[in-house]
């Protein structure tokens, strides 16, 4: 495989509108970010195979390497920040699936500012299905991504990365690539909540708040990451020990419409974290 990687990362100060405004020589300067955006986050497009066969589904990954001490944001950045984005492009005939975000971690900044995101390394992925026939010997994929890198200060960045895969002949195996990295990434993707085997959620509503409680047997730790927008109404979460494990209780400001949860529940069991996609609508009981 010849992976043609082209990372065009533009620094906050050299990135058009996002950066420092155009200044005349005598104009004052804003405090400089301590490092250039190109050093903060590096984007590399990867595939989980070295060659692609007709009709095959492959996974593309926008690998983001984040400088120590910095973080970038989940699909819901939380109370500050900006969601990371990745848009994958494939040749005509390929079907590109939605961009998938692994479960995040939580960051607290002074002033009780809670945000959600990633440190060190994250890969945003997309499942891409090849057409039933492939004429060319190589196919080219690309990804455009944008992020906001923050430490004590924030620096926006964006980049583009490309790669080529050989096409496989009929009967040729597709050769896995970056197997460990893709497996690790896949294990951090939210799974259906049904796989958790949790008891049915219990809803309670009065004029002051709506609460939902979810009990998970064998859980050592539970943490809920709300979907974007949903967190405006989320007033608190608490984990309560039960005889079988833990119960998480989420409290929301009451709205006129039934409450809908669309976030991710992180469940720690036997020291391992798994993420579950929560899609629940308030049901009166």
């Amino acid at each position: 495989m010849r992976a043609l990687v082209l990372a065009l990362v533009c620094a906050g100060s050299a990135c058009g509108s996002a950066g420092e405004p155009a200044t005349s020589p005598e104009a004052p300067r804003a405090p400089r970010p301590p490092r250039r955006a190109s050093e903060l986050v590096r984007l590399t497009l990867l595939a989980d195979v070295a060659r692609v066969a007709p009709g095959q589904e492959v996974t593309l990954g926008a690998r983001l390497d984040i400088a120590p001490g910095w973080h970038i944001y989940w699909a819901n950045p939380g109370e500050s920040g900006l969601a990371s984005e990745a848009t994958f492009t494939a040749p005509t005939g390929f079907k590109v699936g939605p961009t998938r975000f692994p479960g995040p971690v939580r960051f607290e900044s002074p002033g009780d500012i809670t945000s959600y995101g990633y440190q060190e390394l994250v890969m945003l992925t997309s499942r891409v299905a090849a057409p039933a026939s492939l004429d060319s010997e190589r196919v080219r994929f690309s990804v455009q991504a944008s992020w906001l890198a923050c430490r004590d200060v924030c620096v926006p960045g964006r980049g583009e990365s490309e790669m080529e895969l050989e096409t496989a002949r009929a009967g040729e195996p597709s050769l896995p690539a970056h197997a460990e990295l893709f497996a690790r990434q896949a294990s951090a993707l939210p799974r259906p909540l049904a796989e958790l085997g949790a008891a049915a959620p219990r809803w309670r509503r009065d004029e002051r708040q709506v609460t939902v409680a979810l009990e998970v047997a064998g859980a050592e730790r539970l943490e809920y990451f709300p979907a974007s927008g949903e967190d405006l109404g989320l007033t608190g979460q608490a984990s309560v020990p039960t005889s079988a494990g833990l119960r998480i209780e989420l409290s929301y400001r009451p709205a006129t419409r039934p409450l809908r949860l669309g976030g991710v529940l992180a469940v720690t069991k036997a020291h391992a974290v798994r993420y579950y996609a929560v899609d629940l609508e308030e049901s009166p009981r």
Binding site: S109, P110, G111
Partner: peptide
């Protein structure tokens, strides 16, 4: 009356 703000975190002291 309320939307989700975006941007840098306010740089509060500890």
């Amino acid at each position: 009356a309320e939307t989700k703000a975006y941007g840098c975190s306010v740089k509060y002291g500890n």
